[in-house]
């Protein structure tokens, strides 16, 4: 059971560094919404930065992989992302095709390398 709960410190960190900094924007939207122009420059910039941060997260997982993904050599990780993207484009933007192709390239490469 204690494995399930983990330590209390980590749960408090989740609240302070995760839940509150995330929820504050939803509640601000609820509180201040209405008076805001959806097409305003400020919101456009915010959306652009948020998308770029998300892209950074994707790059981070590939460049500095966590856990078991670190056992995959860098060229296979980059290759899987590139192959998945190619499949995504060829299939007229099918998320499913991109994910499956990326996974297959990584698994095949790993199997081939032994």
């Amino acid at each position: 059971m204690s494995d399930f709960i983990g330590n209390w410190h980590a749960l408090i960190v989740l609240l302070v560094a995760g839940v509150i900094p995330n929820q504050i924007w939803r509640m601000l939207g609820l509180w201040l919404g209405g008076g805001l122009d959806e097409g305003s420059d400020l919101l456009m910039w915010v959306k652009a930065v948020a998308t770029a941060i998300l892209a950074g997260v994707i790059a981070q997982i590939i460049v500095q992989p966590p856990g078991a993904l670190a056992s995959v050599p860098w060229f296979l990780r980059y290759g899987a992302l590139a192959a998945g993207f190619a499949a995504f484009m060829v299939t007229r933007r099918s998320i499913f095709a991109g994910v499956v192709c990326g996974e297959l390239v990584m698994l095949a490469g790993k199997w081939w390398l032994g």
């Binding site: 504050i24 924007w25 939803r26």
Partner: peptide, 11 residues
């Protein structure tokens, strides 16, 4: 910073 995008979504 990543959560700011939720603000325009809620709005």
């Amino acid at each position: 910073m990543s959560a700011i995008r939720l603000f325009p979504m809620v709005v």
